[in-house]
Design a binder for these strands. Structure first.
Lengths: 168, 168
DNA sequence: TATTGTTATACTCTATAACTATA
DNA sequence: TATAGTTATAGAGTATAACAATA
């Protein structure tokens, strides 16, 4: 994890953040939620920049779907929707697009004729390794200001944050 | 086709994340971007939950606007839009709502008759301290699984991430 | 009766372009 | 000519409700 900042508790009000414009931001720079939101936006933009070089660019959410489908072949749309936290109706146009580009394929389920068994399509099998490499490049770039091993500690801290924000 | 990376790289693939559903998530749990997105969603929901108790609930973005306006009275809409990273046209309906609730006020600028000088409204002056207290409670809750001082380190790491993702 | 995928619909958030009144 | 605020409009992204087919 990052440096054990030897300050007592509430982080400093901060006179001016990085790339600042001279405005007084008050308590904002001391808030985890504020740092989280700004980092999130920048990281998404960097992801898109890396993907722009690909033949079929995908969003972070779509990349997640491709990984999930490849590791859990035969998954149903409802199960996938639950796994990524969206309504099953929200998933339909997303899968439509991925299927249109051959990234995934909707097979008839052998056991339930209402259900679709999701698999990677031909383009998906060809491109997923390229997407994974692109994501690794992206991860290396966004973490380049961190010290070695700090990325893992950051993930651990974010998972703890998720837990603190989620659990009753 | 998930390929065994022969680099000594990413953290462990993770057998099952917290609150998992038995699905194999492959490399996802080892990605900072993935942890960031999930934490972000949970933290926003917790913010909304804290705000639900207030007379006039505000979003994280609206809270940021109130802080900015209170610390930089006389700010113009264009300057504010730039500070929070949205188009100035996007800001208009947001300020409309805040003004309707008396949280902010658009004064005529003394120096430029095209421009509005933003100030806190009467309700804004009364409520901002309550919002700030609510945000501190929210911050304390989401950080409750972290060790003492780790919140500051987390902010520092997120700021470094922002820098790595942003700079050319 | 309940569930799966789908459709229709609506709501939120955001941007672009064009307008107006000033500068 | 350029800028500040505004409007009209459009495109993502998301959800809810209802439907047909199937369980």
């Amino acid at each position: 994890m990052p440096r054990p900042s030897r300050h007592s508790d509430m982080p400093s009000p901060d006179t001016a953040g990085p790339g600042s414009d001279g405005l007084d931001r008050g308590m904002l720079p001391g808030l985890v939620g504020y740092a989280l939101r700004r980092a999130q936006v920048a990281v998404f933009q960097d992801f898109a920049r890396e993907m722009a070089a690909m033949r079929v660019p995908v969003t972070p959410g779509e990349f997640g779907i491709l990984v999930l489908v490849s590791r859990n072949p035969g998954l149903s749309q409802t199960a996938l929707a639950r796994a990524i936290g969206v309504d099953r109706s929200t998933l339909v146009p997303i899968l439509d697009r991925l299927e249109r580009h051959g990234l995934i394929k909707r097979h008839p389920s052998p056991t339930d004729r209402r259900s679709h068994a999701l698999e990677l399509g031909a383009a998906g099998m060809a491109l997923l390794p390229l997407y994974e490499a692109a994501v690794r490049r992206h991860e290396r770039r966004i973490q380049r200001r961190l010290r070695a091993g700090e990325g893992g500690a950051l993930i651990a801290a974010l998972d703890l944050l998720l837990d603190g924000a989620t659990s009753r």
